[in-house]
């Protein structure tokens, strides 16, 4: 393996890592606030990509990339709130809400995927890159699109992190996550904060969909694999801090890139899940600490 190949694989791994970080962070926002896993997160990614495509790249709408991103964020926020009200809220006071919401969100994901299939058809589509052309660093050529994507992902993650850390609403979301009853007694509007966290998570998924759609093909089932990887990242890295799934995402992305090169494409998922099992045996709370949110 030459140094150039190494850098090439490394760049690929970083791109994957950035994507996974965005997906996993969205998933972690719901997991740490509501205490449930949202299996519709993958379908949210798909829906975001299709919404952006509809607004920015078709005959009917070619309002440009920015409008596409805005449509994905706004549309997915609303979708997230609706999903929460219809699929999670009715079971909120049940003791087995975690299990119930696995099934209901899975059902929601299937319905949303099929709806996308009905509306836009199964033919694969692609979002044009945000910026055309390639750039060369140290003899490695990557598309400018991917570099811009990594930068944007980091900016988005920093913004979400700052929102949770410093804004009053973010602080309230963290408080509700840790002690719902104390938050209620202090006059916080818990149902609204739950719906907001779900909407925020879905909006992040919508942006992730926009990026996935610009480097892979879009199909109605394009969200399945990212959901798998996001789950892997969240369990693998833990959610002790806002940053833990982000680190874990880059680890998973790099492992995936190198494993694809050395072990082969078909065995890469096995490598990743095998690695996750080993990590969980040694460190059950995840690589970066406990299943409890601090920031």
């Amino acid at each position: 393996m030459t140094f150039e190949t190494f850098l090439f694989v490394l760049a690929g791994g970083l791109v994957l890592g950035a994507l996974y970080a965005l997906m996993a962070t969205g998933l972690a926002v719901v997991w740490t606030t509501l205490g449930i896993f949202n299996f519709a997160h993958g379908a949210f990614i798909t829906f975001g990509a299709y919404l952006a495509w509809q607004v920015s790249q078709t005959e009917a709408g070619n309002a440009g990339y920015f409008a596409g991103a805005a449509a994905a964020v706004a549309g997915l926020f609303i979708t997230g709130v609706i999903f929460h009200l219809a699929l999670v809220r009715p079971f909120e006071r049940k003791p087995n809400v975690v299990l119930l919401s696995v099934i209901t969100t899975l059902a929601g994901a299937t319905i949303l995927e099929n709806a996308i299939d009905l509306v836009w058809g199964p033919r694969s589509k692609q979002l044009a890159p945000m910026v055309p052309g390639d750039a060369t660093f140290f003899g490695v050529t990557t598309s400018k699109n991917q570099i811009l994507m990594i930068v944007l992902v980091l900016i988005i993650l920093a913004a979400v992190g700052a929102f949770l850390r410093y804004s009053a609403t973010g602080r309230a979301m963290r408080a509700v996550a840790q002690n719902r009853e104390a938050a209620e007694l202090m006059g916080l509007d818990v149902p609204k904060l739950y719906a907001g966290a779900f909407g925020l998570s879905a909006a992040i998924a919508g942006l992730a969909g926009l990026f996935v759609g610009s480097i892979h093909f879009m199909t109605p089932s394009m969200g399945t694999d990212p959901l798998m990887k996001a789950l892997l990242v969240v369990i693998f890295g833990g959610v002790a801090r806002f940053t833990s799934p982000i680190y874990a995402a880059f680890v998973v992305g790099l492992v995936e890139a190198f494993s694809t090169y050395y072990v082969g494409l078909y065995w890469t998922p096995a490598v990743l899940f095998g690695l996750m099992i080993v990590v969980l045996i040694v460190k059950p709370e995840g690589l970066f600490g406990k299943y409890e949110r601090s920031v």
Binding site: R171, R174, A175, Q178, A183, L188, E292, R293, S294
Partner: peptide, 12 residues
């Protein structure tokens, strides 16, 4: 709230 600081708790 276990993981919030005293300042943040008072802020709520």
């Amino acid at each position: 709230y276990r993981e919030l600081t005293v300042r943040e708790t008072l802020g709520i």
